[in-house]
Amino acid sequence: MATVSMTVNGKLVSRDIDPRTLLAQFLREELRLTGTHVGCDTTQCGCCTVHVDGKAMKSCTLLALGVDGSHITTIEGLAHGQELHPMQAAFRDHHGLQCGFCTPGMIMTAVDMVNRKGTNLDDQTIREELEGNICRCTGYHNIVKAVHYGAEAMAGTTKAAAE
């Protein structure tokens, strides 16, 4: 066992864990933050995407000990109370999901995309940036649309909303 400490959604957490614990497992099983999903477990589908020190990464391919001391934001950390993050609201308003399994990863990637590329995103940029997220239901059209409008809605609130 080894001790790991990190700040998750603004709260400092510390646990004794087996060194083989992946960040996705740590979030889901230790902290019970089950919004982070594990789809493929092979670094391809992007369902497990979270922000590590402000950057989108795949939590199924990080050891929890490997991000010791980091600041983690998960899908649970985006909304303000009952008020959805603009990107979450856009996915709901524009039907950017069907089964919803990939949605947490899509939204974490989308917010990271806006942080790096700004709030005025064209479709080609959105599609390229979503390369690491796989959806089996929607055919992506409404996801691209949702990211486009979610990014616009984040304009002006980008910094506050990002973390």
């Binding site: 989108a56 990464m57 690491g132």
Partner: peptide
């Protein structure tokens, strides 16, 4: 290389 998340790490 890979995708944005892979490139971050």
């Amino acid at each position: 290389i890979g995708d944005p998340m892979v490139r971050h790490r």
